[in-house]
Nucleic acid binder design. Structure first.
Lengths: 237, 237
DNA sequence: GCCTCATAAAATTTCGAAATTATATTGACA
DNA sequence: TGTCAATATAATTTCGAAATTTTATGAGGC
């Protein structure tokens, strides 16, 4: 699964692999995580496995009940709404700070990551069926890098960390909707609008565009859920 | 140490005990956490201990380097400022939401926790020397309960969780300054002002009073650090 | 005297199994 | 036939020690 990762211990590696498999949906929301099975699947012992699970509980990717085991954290429309709301709050705060504090090197990194993302988005096919897994992975990676670079210069490590955590949680939801047909054109335009606002150091516009981007993304996800078997992915709301 | 706690497993209990000992300063900031020693001190084996540490890393109470072990997370004035800033952001958002969404039962719980806190604050002595550990613990508990009740009706589980985490982190800093002399009178007045604003469902005033309260508390902590051996508690800023 | 390399000690990380707790099954009784 | 208790099974939790990695120690060479 995840191969070349900066994991210095088995525990680290297992944590990253489990997280990726949950985000990707290989481990379905709500599924019971049997320790015996996970030890076999990931080829590790009890200790690093439990350590990885403890970290995933902090990330809200896994839930636990004492003496009863572990489950993949459920998904819900209520959580999607909450995630979107708090991301808006933190992301706008972070971008505002970054625009004020960021130097030329930061602006260059924003330009670079945006260019790479724009290149990939230009290659995206119109139909969802023609979207290869490789291209999807490249887009996910570039999208993550672009949004991370936007807030990298913010002078609040705590906000940056919280934002990062919520981004990962949201990725779970986005992955479900990305396999369905999407309005890629709109996303591309939204990224451009954010980039231009940041480039011009226009705080208000950058915040507004960011909020629109997050809201629209959440709308897409909500639609995809409504279309394809919501009961498979969603807990009772 | 922590005795009657809702811990269903050794791992849980160890997590709570370690966190309390770090917040209380029994485990000093920056100190190396030797696994062998911790196993003896807390009377547990390797597995629950490492699980507890993994959770504390998520809470930013502990840091780790692969293959090199664990340390009590350092403290810094920079982090105090960041904590104060983000707490203001989340706390005001949460209180606003709670005032709008909260029902009569919530308002009652706010009144109850405020009354209890006011009672205890009325008993506080003028000089720091006369402050008993029992009274300090009672105040910490009531203060926590009051502030928690204020935001309990907010309709964002994520904000409530983040707020809770930052409150615990801040408690570490506050404990250092509480042993020094304090302007208790001012804190009492601030709590009253927040309570009255919430009781009147005055969102703007509740937010403003909350911000003032957080800022003044941080100022007290900063002063206490300047007075008493900052290099003992603080990492390089 | 100082740097380098080999060796020893200490600490972390991981495994595998024992002990504990929860869940499922079976049989007795009303 | 349904309910409850007793037993058997399965799963989680914990321990203690082996394996790995880092850090400290000391000898030899420049």
């Amino acid at each position: 699964m995840t191969s070349a990762s900066p994991a210095r211990s088995l525990s680290d590696r297992t944590y990253l692999q489990l997280r990726e498999d949950i985000v990707a949906g290989k481990l379905q929301a709500g599924a019971k995580l049997k320790l015996e099975g996970l030890m076999q699947d990931y080829g590790v012992g009890m200790s690093p496995l439990r350590e990885a699970l403890a970290r995933l509980i902090g990330d809200r990717m896994v839930t636990t009940e004492a003496q009863r085991g572990f489950w993949v954290a459920p998904m819900s429309l209520a959580e999607l709404d909450d995630l979107t709301r708090v991301r808006s709050l933190l992301e706008t705060e972070a971008i505002s700070s970054a625009i004020v504090k960021g130097d030329a090197a930061w602006m260059q990194s924003v330009t670079d990551t945006f260019s790479q993302l724009a290149d990939i988005e230009a290659q995206l096919p119109a139909s969802a069926e023609a979207l290869t897994p490789q291209l999807l992975e490249a887009w996910e990676s570039s999208n993550r890098a672009f949004h991370a670079s936007l807030v990298a210069a913010a002078d609040s490590p705590i906000i940056i960390r919280f934002r990062q955590q919520l981004y990962q949680q949201s990725e779970r939801y986005r992955r479900v909707s990305l396999t369905a047909s999407r309005g890629w054109r709109s996303v591309t335009e939204e990224h451009l609008a954010i980039y231009e606002a940041v480039r011009d150091r226009n705080v208000l516009r950058a915040c507004k565009m960011t909020e629109i981007h997050l809201t629209r993304t959440a709308d897409e996800v909500r639609k995809a859920f409504a279309a394809a078997n919501p009961e498979r992915f969603l807990a009772a709301t």
